[in-house]
Amino acid sequence: MSTSTEAPRSGSSATIDLNADLGEGLGNWSMGDDLALLDIVTSANVACGFHAGDPSIMRSVCQAAADRGVAIGAHVAYRDLHGFGRRFIDMEPDVLRDEVLYQIGALETFAQRAGTTVAYCKPHGALYNTIAKHPQQAAAVAEALGEFRPGLPVLGLPGSVWLRAAAEAGLSPVGEAFADRAYTPDGSLVSRREQGSVLHEPDLISERCVAMAKGEPIEDAEGGELVLDARSICVHGDTPGAVGIARSVREALTSSGVTVQPFATPFGS
């Protein structure tokens, strides 16, 4: 997987989006502090019911995001509640296409009720990692999103099969980096099954995010330098101390002269 070779962006002109995975509760069970994170991030990846979330949660998160001017994105996934969408499913492409279209269509209904629209899509978990390298599934997801709205912005790993498939389908690919995840030298995420795959130190995470926003190198899992061509950074909401980490990241970005704003706007805006 290729990474960016562009010159580092200057701190005075750097702009970045902060996104977080939200609405990942189910019924009376909740995960993370959605409202606190919505006061920090600029884009909300809202679970659409297949890996987490339910209709009432989708409605409430969409409304809270709209009230704060936070862009709403569809966090589509494999149909895998028990595994939280983190298990690969070998699906026929047309079935995957329809399941993705079903999810984003449901979220769009609640976004419209909140006075806005779904502004982008970010696949979740195993689906995100699979389509980074799996051409057939990547094409199926791209087809679904193109049927939903031509030109829709989509998040993914820079240089991935997924972003290439999205571009070929007429979507708008946007490179994404992860604040608290370790990277392999080729720009892939280190598997969560491996020790050290998730970072927990707020100062280290914040320093990495400033570097990523400015187009400067970060250290990969093998000690080398890696530059990621990203317009959005994900701050996970399900890790211990997530709100504090997200707040530290945003403060570090703004104090370093980086403008934090959504990469996508609601349809028709």
Rank of each mutant, 00 (worst) to 15 (best):
G156N: 00
I57Q: 14
K214N: 08
G170K: 05
V154G: 13
V210E: 05
D229C: 03
Q195T: 14
M212K: 04
A77E: 05
G170S: 03
E201L: 07
Q137D: 15
W29Q: 03
G32I: 12
D220E: 09
S256L: 07
G11Y: 11
A139D: 14
Y120W: 08
F110T: 02
F84A: 01
L171K: 10
M91R: 06
V46S: 14
A177H: 01
G237L: 08
K133E: 09
G170V: 03
R250P: 06
S255R: 02
T117R: 14
A166F: 03
G83V: 03
S172I: 03
V100A: 13
G49P: 04
E24G: 00
V76N: 03
G268A: 14
P202E: 06
L38E: 01
A242V: 07
V190H: 00
P202R: 07
L204H: 15
L81A: 04
D17W: 01
A169E: 00
Y128E: 14
R231N: 13
C48L: 12
F267K: 12
E147D: 15
I72A: 10
I218E: 10
Q112P: 05
R250Q: 08
V95G: 02
Y128M: 09
E225M: 13
E108Y: 00
M58L: 10
R164V: 00
I233Q: 14
S160Q: 04
A264L: 14
A142P: 02
D229I: 10
A111G: 12
L226M: 12
L35D: 15
D80I: 00
G241D: 11
S160N: 07
A52P: 01
G156I: 00
P185R: 04
S232P: 11
P8G: 03
S60M: 02
L22W: 13
Q63T: 09
E147S: 14
I40R: 15
G237C: 08
Y78V: 02
P173F: 05
P123Y: 09
H75C: 05
L226P: 15
A142Q: 00
R164N: 02
E92I: 04
L26F: 15
V210Y: 01
E176T: 07
S255N: 13
A167I: 00
I16Y: 10
G187V: 02
T265Q: 13
L171R: 08
S269P: 05
L228I: 15
L199M: 15
D17F: 10
P158Y: 01
E147H: 11
F88L: 14
A77Y: 05
S56W: 02
H75W: 05
S43A: 15
G105W: 10
Y128S: 11
I205Y: 12
A71C: 07
C62E: 06
G53K: 02
L155H: 11
A74S: 12
M58Y: 08
I245N: 15
I131A: 06
F263E: 09
L96N: 12
R68S: 11
P262F: 09
L163F: 06
Y102A: 03
L145R: 08
L228R: 14
V70C: 07
A211G: 04
S43F: 04
D229Q: 10
E201W: 03
R86E: 08
Q103C: 08
R68Y: 01
